[in-house]
Write a protein that binds this DNA or RNA. Structure first.
Lengths: 355, 355
DNA sequence: TTGTAAGCGTTATCAT
DNA sequence: ATGATAACGCTTACAA
């Protein structure tokens, strides 16, 4: 098999130059304190001189495991997951764990393939979004020889660990906020009905139904992926179906922003004639004019904690609490504050802040 | 070393069950047509029955290469890179290439580490953002034993291939658009001065300078990462420094949206008293009220082409054109259209579209 | 503290 | 078309 023209400096090269055996170099790399200071220094010098970098494939093959943490999210474009990913990367920094990202594109089949691919790499851990895995995927995960964290949601029967919150309750709280603000004919705008969206819709229904205020005609959804433009369209649909609607809970912030712009275009006063509440509380919501009420979710923290929990578990520090509920927070702002002095009709907004 | 309790079914297991040698199974997996139909079918059946999945580490070690495409971006939160990543994933779908993401967080040192880590994995290719690698990184890349695509920008001396556009020209065109629209006291709002931002600022200067309209006092920048909120703050700063400014070129769309909201808050008529132009043309820009002028960049296409180019090169299809300039497109909208009938002062906008 | 031997699961090479 | 054999670069297990 000879030399196939590989560039690499190997452990053996380093060992030879440093006048020790390969095993000592291997140890110096992973448990520096189990090697004499003298060897350690000599080895370190040679490594730098030769520019040695360990071959992860050889390592994985010999050790039967890797320091890879597989992360499976349904979207890489979505702001929400971008924040979660950043939290994961932040927590992984300075640790030996190497994050590897997989994008399931909201497809259960792609998700199953990803899990299979990740498992074939003998990962140290897996972080997977949601609690709605297919039966096949669930089977793989249940018998997986690594630690697993489910994120984004809490629910019963975790495979292992969980970091999330209740979307049902969060949506319920948002809807209650609209009720408390005095709105009565409340609509729901939703895009891409993934399982979390559906549970939010459920929370919406459960909040309005007992009060006799649930009107299915005010629920407007579409399978299309969400966008600001779509928020405008959904608002337009809602207004043509149920023109007397006086507030909307938007299933995410993009839709809420689009709904606000649509109101401004139509000279509908917000919050006077129409209340608007979003979901996630992206940075933009506070900066908008009028500022937009939303439900703050702790996305970055979710990623951070998922990774930290995994790290702790892998270090053998068993957590007493395998399911972490991060909660949420309704953030009331101008778009649902009827006590604000309404702007002129065509302004479509109020002054929420001094200039 | 015995059995360490690994879960895996191996090639040898499949070979034994199928009554052939390991090599035949290996061949059947990678070059099905170099194996008799009989063996092929028998092997396929056993693979499915046993649930065999190849071990990528063993494969990498034996073959000396992998089907990994390393992708290095400076941010995973930024919409722009999210779109590029989606393009890459889209183009990788259905190919044997496995995309692996690295986040350099705008740090040249982190970037160098990532390159080193990726190279240690013997990747089939590397996609790296920008043309401003450190000398150390450049050295690694020049002697890398794999194909390389630089994305986001075009420039001289590609390591190998390149897919991008000229940020300098794009910013110049945007500034020219503001001039053509009749604005004369034009400002620049910029956050995080990465190399691309700086080249955009350069394009801005080069456009205004010959006309004698460049006023450094109207250039407001900050090292902070960009956000909608920050766009408002920068606009506020600009107005206190140079209150007679009549238009701004914002270095990205978030800033532009924030600037627009700030104008609305202050009852500054847009586009009447203040023209606003963003950069990238995110989906939101068209949906805003008033709709916001921006410079469309082909982010998804950039990722798609980078990956396709790489795929073609790896298949041995040499491209005649190793540097692809995707260009850009100034998209004029309401925020720079002075011919529109101005809304009332406090409206801060115009009706860009019928309801 | 250090070294020796064996093998991890796959593919390249060369025969047959 | 198929197979025997020798690596690939590293780590586990055990011995010194």
């Amino acid at each position: 098999m000879k030399n196939r023209g590989r560039s690499g400096v190997t452990l053996a090269d380093v060992a030879r130059e440093a006048g020790v055996s390969a095993m000592t170099v291997s140890r110096a790399l992973r448990n520096p304190d189990r090697v004499s200071a003298r060897s350690r220094d000599a080895i370190q010098a040679v490594i730098e001189r030769l520019g040695y970098v360990p071959d992860p494939a050889a390592r994985a093959l010999a050790a039967g495991r890797t320091n890879v943490i597989g992360v499976i999210v349904p979207s890489v474009t979505n702001n929400v997951f971008a924040d979660v990913m950043r939290g994961i990367y932040d927590a992984a920094e300075g640790t030996p764990w190497q994050v590897q990202l997989g994008n399931s594109r909201y497809s259960p089949i792609a998700e199953e393939d990803l899990v299979r691919t990740f498992l074939s790499q003998k990962p140290a851990g897996l972080i997977i979004s949601g609690i709605d895995q297919s039966e096949a995927t669930a089977g793989l995960l249940r018998s997986a020889p690594c630690r697993i964290v489910q994120i984004m949601e809490t629910g019963p029967d975790p495979f292992d660990m969980m970091v999330g919150f209740s979307h049902r309750e969060a949506a319920g709280a948002a809807t209650r906020h609209l009720l408390d603000a005095g709105y009565r004919r409340i609509g729901f705008l939703g895009a891409r009905l993934d399982p979390r969206t559906q549970r939010r819709l459920e929370g919406f229904r459960v909040c309005l139904s007992p009060a006799g205020l649930l009107d299915e005609a005010r629920i407007v959804t579409t399978p299309q992926p969400s966008s600001v433009t779509l928020g405008g369209h959904l608002m337009a649909d809602l207004l043509s179906t149920a023109p007397d609607t006086d507030a909307v809970f938007c299933n995410n912030d993009d839709l809420a922003v689009g709904a606000l712009f649509e109101c401004q275009r139509r000279r509908i006063a917000v919050p006077g004639q129409m209340g608007i509440c979003g979901f996630n509380d992206l940075e933009m919501m506070a900066a908008a004019h009028p500022s937009i009420t939303s439900v703050l979710t702790f996305r970055h923290e979710m990623g951070r904690q998922a990774m930290s929990l995994l790290g702790a578990a892998l270090r053998g520090e068993e957590t007493s609490q395998p399911v972490v509920d991060l909660g949420f927070e309704v953030v009331p702002r101008a778009t649902t504050d009827r006590t604000l002095q309404p702007g002129r009709a065509e302004g479509g907004g109020v002054r929420a802040r001094a200039p």
